[in-house]
Amino acid sequence: MKLTWRSVFVGLILVAIVGGIVLVSGVVPIKASSGHWAITRALLDFASDRSVAFHSRGVEPPDDSTAKNSRLGREVFRTNCKFCHGWPGEPIPPVAAGMTPKPPVLGSEVLKKEPRELFHIIQHGIKFAGMPAWPVRQRPDEVWPVVAFLREQNSVHVRDEETRHRSHDSATNRVAGLEACVACHGEDGFSRVGPQVPTLAGQSREYLVSALTEYREGKRSSGIMMPIAHQLDDRQINSLASRYATVNTGNLSAAESQTTVKNVDAASIQRGKRLAERGDGTRKIAACSECHDRDATSHHSSYPRLAGQGAWYVRKQLELFGEQIRSQTERGQRMSEIAKSLTARDRSDLAAYYASLTWHTEE
């Protein structure tokens, strides 16, 4: 029988009416405990895979090997991702196992995805799947270490790392919140996972309180630090800041050995020194030393001490200031105005200079 436009139109109206009745009545279950039908799950998985493949086109991993630091990615995964996905080689945690859809088991097909696809999923999340987007969209540099960890993970190796981590926890969890700090910053304030993590040893208590508070309030952008700081109250922040501010660092010989500038010519360090101490009046760049003294006798306790800090970290922070990503506070706005005038060579020179220094604590 040949259908007329009128009969098609009537049919669509009837379908809409039935759909409206079903929607309003609430007869369709949305309980997670029922799971998806097999065909629904297959269609959703297919659609998700195709969407990720399409929208991740053009994403390229950074050339900088430091930006793909799987050691940092391991600790970020432990802090941000383990609750839902479990640890590689282990079952999904019981709570996450009750989700619909369930988080994928690591070590399965998900780890065979291209780096660009994993990056897209971690940075943007997946709708209707409980997979959140990265807390700070402007910090892709924090996502790539997690991608590196997932791509390089080996179940036996990773389980060994987790065992060592657990055995260390009992000895370090004396201050509320310290466990999360120690994983990356160590008990002594020196990075355990690479140059992307700053040295806390020797920083003032006032500065550390300010930094943690800004992370907690979302005034300083970091998808790694924000979730951790959000769980801390004022008392815990003060305790953690006091602990790291009073670490007995001596002359920071550990920092000197970890942040020694390699393959950097002396001219770069000298250019950085000149810019740090004198600034550049023609470009309205203030001298860094006006706020960032090189030793522990500084009167600017609300500012970070940069001497002995890793070159990669200093350079990256200057980039973030220049891109207005760290301009949510009054101090950040002042730094952003300065950093916008810095060239890439200026940033590298300043980073090399400060990484070549050490400072001395008061006796």
Score class of each variant (00 low, 15 high):
residue 70 S to L: 12
residue 115 P to W: 09
residue 175 V to F: 11
residue 55 H to Q: 11
residue 115 P to T: 04
residue 132 P to H: 00
residue 80 N to Q: 11
residue 117 E to I: 02
residue 124 H to F: 15
residue 78 R to H: 11
residue 177 G to D: 01
residue 109 E to K: 14
residue 146 V to A: 02
residue 151 R to M: 14
residue 113 K to C: 01
residue 101 P to S: 05
residue 101 P to H: 10
residue 115 P to I: 01
residue 167 S to W: 09
residue 109 E to F: 14
residue 106 L to P: 05
residue 148 A to E: 06
residue 106 L to H: 04
residue 115 P to F: 09
residue 127 K to G: 05
residue 76 V to G: 07
residue 174 R to H: 15
residue 157 H to V: 14
residue 108 S to M: 08
residue 56 S to R: 03
residue 110 V to L: 09
residue 168 H to A: 14
residue 90 E to M: 12
residue 133 A to W: 03
residue 103 P to L: 12
residue 135 P to L: 09
residue 137 R to V: 11
residue 54 F to P: 03
residue 92 I to P: 03
residue 129 A to N: 09
residue 135 P to N: 04
residue 147 V to I: 06
residue 66 T to Q: 04
residue 99 M to R: 11
residue 86 G to I: 04
residue 129 A to F: 12
residue 67 A to E: 08
residue 120 H to M: 08
residue 82 K to G: 07
residue 104 P to K: 10
residue 89 G to E: 06
residue 128 F to C: 01
residue 160 D to N: 15
residue 108 S to V: 10
residue 54 F to L: 13
residue 114 E to R: 12
residue 79 T to C: 11
residue 167 S to T: 10
residue 133 A to C: 06
residue 63 D to E: 15
residue 150 L to V: 05
residue 56 S to G: 10
residue 148 A to C: 01
residue 127 K to Y: 09
residue 158 V to D: 02
residue 158 V to I: 14
residue 69 N to V: 11
residue 79 T to W: 05
residue 100 T to D: 01
residue 111 L to V: 15
residue 101 P to A: 00
residue 165 H to D: 12
residue 68 K to H: 08
residue 68 K to N: 07
residue 64 D to W: 12
residue 117 E to L: 10
residue 150 L to G: 04
residue 125 G to D: 09
residue 165 H to E: 13
residue 83 F to A: 15
residue 151 R to S: 04
residue 145 P to S: 06
residue 70 S to Q: 11
residue 148 A to T: 02
residue 112 K to C: 08
residue 91 P to S: 03
residue 89 G to F: 03
residue 142 E to D: 04
residue 92 I to F: 10
residue 170 S to D: 10
residue 77 F to K: 04
residue 62 P to E: 03
residue 147 V to M: 00
residue 104 P to E: 07
residue 71 R to S: 12
residue 80 N to E: 04
residue 83 F to Q: 15
residue 56 S to Y: 07
residue 89 G to N: 00
residue 69 N to H: 02
residue 177 G to K: 08
residue 106 L to N: 01
residue 70 S to M: 13
residue 112 K to E: 14
residue 111 L to F: 12
